[in-house]
Design a binder for these strands. Sequence first.
DNA 1: CTGAAAGCGCTTACAG
DNA 2: CTGAAAGCGCTTACAG
Lengths: 349, 349
Amino acid sequence: MSLRPATRRITLTDVARGCGVSRATVSLVLRGSPLVHADTRARVEAELRRQGYVYHRGAANLRRKVSNSVALVINDLSNPFFAEFAAGVDEALAEAGYVTLLGSTGESTERQRAVLGSLLEHDPAGIILSPAEGSDGAQLHAQVGARTPVLVFNRALSGESGWDFLALDNVAGARLATEHLLERGHRRIAFVGGHRDSSSCRQRREGYRAALAAAGIGPEPQWLVECAPTRLEAARAVGALFVRDPAPTAAVCYNDAVALGVMAGLAQRGRHAGVDFAVTGFDDIPEASVSAPPLTTIAVDPRMRGRQAAELVLQRVHGPDAAPRHTVAPIRLQVRASSDTALPPGAIA
Amino acid sequence: MSLRPATRRITLTDVARGCGVSRATVSLVLRGSPLVHADTRARVEAELRRQGYVYHRGAANLRRKVSNSVALVINDLSNPFFAEFAAGVDEALAEAGYVTLLGSTGESTERQRAVLGSLLEHDPAGIILSPAEGSDGAQLHAQVGARTPVLVFNRALSGESGWDFLALDNVAGARLATEHLLERGHRRIAFVGGHRDSSSCRQRREGYRAALAAAGIGPEPQWLVECAPTRLEAARAVGALFVRDPAPTAAVCYNDAVALGVMAGLAQRGRHAGVDFAVTGFDDIPEASVSAPPLTTIAVDPRMRGRQAAELVLQRVHGPDAAPRHTVAPIRLQVRASSDTALPPGAIA
DNA sequence: CTGAAAGCGCTTACAG
DNA sequence: CTGAAAGCGCTTACAG
């Protein structure tokens, strides 16, 4: 807690006294009321500047029983995807006159609980929650209560929370990526990365399977490779693709980190994405456009998702109560060199 | 502003009434005072839980004239370096019982002004400011005033602000990188990237010159290549290194983005970093460890810098007034393959 | 058009 | 050990 009373804060009372009006009048000037005479207004405004008055929004909010903050709880700020998302949220909230209370949880449900508790004490008008892995919807709902609207982003909560949800279209994204590889002539396509029990992994696998099924292909068990969604784990997992002949000629990856790891793992085996193996990612992180080779991926535009999340939660803040809404954000395929293949047609089929 | 009064907020008064004590007693229980009888405490705590009471820290802070928030103003949250920094700040602030008010400026001094104004109204105990390019120290100081301690991070403000400053050790970093190349046998070493008038570029060039000077080398003018600190511009600038014979055999780059661009530019000319040319970067962005080849660079550990920034600003918040402090964060050389060279000794000397 | 008064949710001397 | 009262900085009916 701040001590440092050093120099006393300038308040409405100081300003009122300084130009011989009541606090009420100064307050009306601050809030731009048309009730105040132009001359009075000018005098007050001069005095506000002269004394260097700073509005105390906390006090005003307390009196008015409103809040102009929104809590943003992020599972992994060091992931560029969520950092961009946070930037978009903050941008849109600022435009709407709200301030962002940040909390990062580092994927720990314990820290999430602590962070939420602390942020709730600051009376946020709403909460944007990108949940830590393994978050329990019922527990979170009990903690937050019914007074504060929550928008869940990206990851479905286990159990029921009754909150709005902004999801990426995981199914459509993985389907697009798989269809793209099928169009390039690939028939043996792996799906690499993610944890089977995470909702986003399940959905992406579902899109992958759907695209294969539409092409009359049933995936071989060894085409489904599970691993943590990190570069390092993915690079290690590449070996699993080549244990049996015929091996896959392409891989749909859970996300860009996995795809980059897969490309590195391929290189260690003398293979090259975009040349003798095709790879796609998911997210379109900044790095995807400049990797070697550049990565074909599913672009989700995290900054726009952030803006969208801000708008959705503010609608709830201002709007009427209604049934929870499930919004699916658009995605698009970004084609780059990693899915090029220079194999002779025979080699692929 | 939030409307949505829906369900009334539970206050101290409700809890006090609910268990037949005064508000003062409930307040004492909340703050863990030893004055309250154990039985009373138990009764009050049960009632707090029963009613689902949520502490209103804003009201408490108003009354106590303290603040438990710190404003974090970031120039570019979509840069992983700053995102990591923000994560570190938030982590350390949360541990210290503070909440982070986030503002991102997107490198716009106008937005920075607006963002700061809005955050100041929330009475932050301190401010951590990673300034937008071209920020004017005097203007910022006038806006913030003397009541709120500010820690400036990463980029010196033009003019004088009288604020604490946490800087990366640019001079030492560039010196380390240059010495590393000298040890590898290189004598003709370029410095690529950055704008001459930016303070960080000046400092990095200074470290580069110092290392060369200590080895008895005066850099040729054409070894100093200026360009925007982006991958694309750096790739374009590579040609300038080879206009005259003998050309440099190595380059110290302004940052990792430049270094990655230089490596791409070299590849376009049939040269290869780590094989027939040595390259170093600065920052150790996540990509540096997985580029082809992996990049030798100066690691600055942005998350630790964030923690450090949080500690510095909290010291100011709690501590006595004192002269502004200039802290230089440690850096370290991270050696990877991009600075390997397989040239025969003759080719280098 | 302006001012006196009450009150937002909390804390903290001060009595008892 | 507990309660009544004042006050943090603001806003908003309500009189005038």
